[in-house]
Design a protein around this nucleic acid. Structure first.
Length: 387
RNA sequence: GGGCGGUUGGCAGAGCGGUCAAAUGCAUGUGGCUGUAAACCACACGUCUUCGGACUGCGGAGGUUCGAAUCCUUCACCGCCCA
């Protein structure tokens, strides 16, 4: 049942028009996955997501394991039922948290904020330990455990546990991270085979290797041997120069299987997505549209005839800026989203200045509408041969 | 009429002889955010500046002191208490 199809290949780039089949629906690619780390796209209902045209969302193994905990999700018959989203779900494995929750990578200012889960980390070949700075409680994640949890989540696309190395990163460290990731990929694959119930859950492998070409290529060699349902390129957009990221895509993508989906993890801003599509990427996820929305940064297409192949095809609007105080126009009059159909910039700014939660909702709705529209434009551009 | 207490930058509120253009919070302004520790974070926030500083400044006026937001005198206003 699950499968992948390439409907069209661009003649002028590596871009592909694709269809990814899952138990919960068929996804037209290239596509973007709004992030629902904890089983919510912050501030939105699943109905709103559906109305926006979201095809698939992304949840996180690590966060959901901590809360509500896997027992609760099992009792709810999976994440779809629990959150009442019947579309496909991709779940990240927690590998990114190895990077993001590592105290060395956390800006010093953040250690002061005491959010609920402040986690430190230990890692070895067996797996990862996260530890709460608050109560000292330890949490363990291994490739096998991450897989089991994702199956329990009823994930349509599961990600293998990987080690996302930071940037900058020494060659030796990156090498170890690749070897570990490769080893964990093998263990994940074996674990999946043992769990025969997991036929409808696809499993993706992840390429690591930091900015080192030979490591990236070695990673591809090892990972593709295991014949995953799709391949992700991880460890990018982690602080390295943008040029470097594209350079890496240039020399990695040609070595990925042509008949499998390609997923660039955590990327990115609009022009990066367009660029990566041209290099052959089919799937994206990023916190940018949702987080920036909450922080008051809104996106809009620029010009009357927006062509994504042109640079500067979009603008950013800092909605809190004073200049919008009396701007009674809409963010983007061509945008069909609820926000743009109903509310002015001046009102949005006012809601932000009030710290009114509705501001977050309206902004999130609009930015996701923008991103989903961008993907639609990309698909159309491939179809019509523009990119 | 008398006795206390108070008056600090847009607001609240520290400071009580030099390290004070003045803590902190709020408000305001600008920016950042890339598999979400993120409705978060950073910077700015008297005026001018050749970015080295310069000038004005803690209710008003006057004084003491090398030096005052800080001590004294006096005036104004606010609060509480006594007549």
């Amino acid at each position: 049942m699950p499968g992948f199809e390439i409907l069209k290949k661009s003649k002028i780039s590596q871009a592909r028009l694709t269809e990814l089949k899952t138990l919960h629906g068929i996804i037209s690619g290239p596509f973007f996955m709004p992030i629902a780390t904890r089983g919510v796209v912050k501030n939105l209902t699943p109905q709103e997501l559906k109305d926006l045209g979201a095809q698939i969302i992304l949840g996180n193994t690590y966060h959901l394991m901590l809360r509500p905990g896997i027992e609760i999700i099992k009792k709810a018959n999976g994440l779809h039922k629990f959150m009442n989203w019947d579309g496909p779900i991709l779940t990240d494995s927690g590998g990114y948290q190895i990077f993001s929750l590592n105290s060395k990578n956390v800006p010093s200012s953040f250690s002061k904020t005491k959010e609920t889960n402040l986690f430190l980390i230990k890692i070895n070949d067996e797996g990862v330990w996260f530890q709460s700075e608050r109560d000292g409680q330890k949490e363990f994640l291994s490739p096998e455990k991450a897989l089991k949890i994702q199956i329990a989540l009823s994930s349509d696309i599961m990600m293998v546990l990987d080690e996302c190395a930071p940037y900058p990163c020494s060659y030796d460290y990156a090498k170890k991270a690749v070897e570990r990731t490769n080893n964990w990929a093998l263990r994940s694959k074996r674990a999946k085979k043992r769990l025969k119930s997991a036929i409808t859950n696809q499993l993706f492998g992840i390429i690591q290797g930091s900015v080192y070409k030979d490591l990236r290529l070695q990673s591809i060699k090892e990972i593709t041997k295991l014949n995953f349902d799709g391949y992700a390129i991880g460890g990018l957009a982690v602080g390295e120069p943008r040029k470097k990221m594209f350079e890496i895509l240039n020399y990695t993508i040609p070595f990925l299987p042509k008949n499998k989906p390609r997923y660039l993890m955590g990327v990115g801003n609009p022009e990066e997505i367009v660029e990566a599509v041209k290099k052959g990427v089919d799937m994206f996820d990023c916190v940018i549209p949702t987080r920036n929305a909450r922080h008051g940064l809104l996106y809009k297409f620029s010009g009357s005839k927006t062509k994504i192949e042109e640079s500067n095809f979009y603008e950013k609007i800092h909605i809190r800026n004073e200049k919008f105080k009396k701007d009674f126009s809409v963010i983007d009059k061509k945008c069909p989203c609820y926000t743009c159909q109903n509310h002015s910039r001046a009102y949005l700014r006012y809601l932000f200045m009030l710290n009114e939660p509705l501001a977050l909702r309206l902004a999130t709705i609009h930015n996701l509408a923008f991103y989903l529209e961008l993907m639609k434009k990309i698909r159309e551009a491939i179809k019509e041969g523009f990119i």
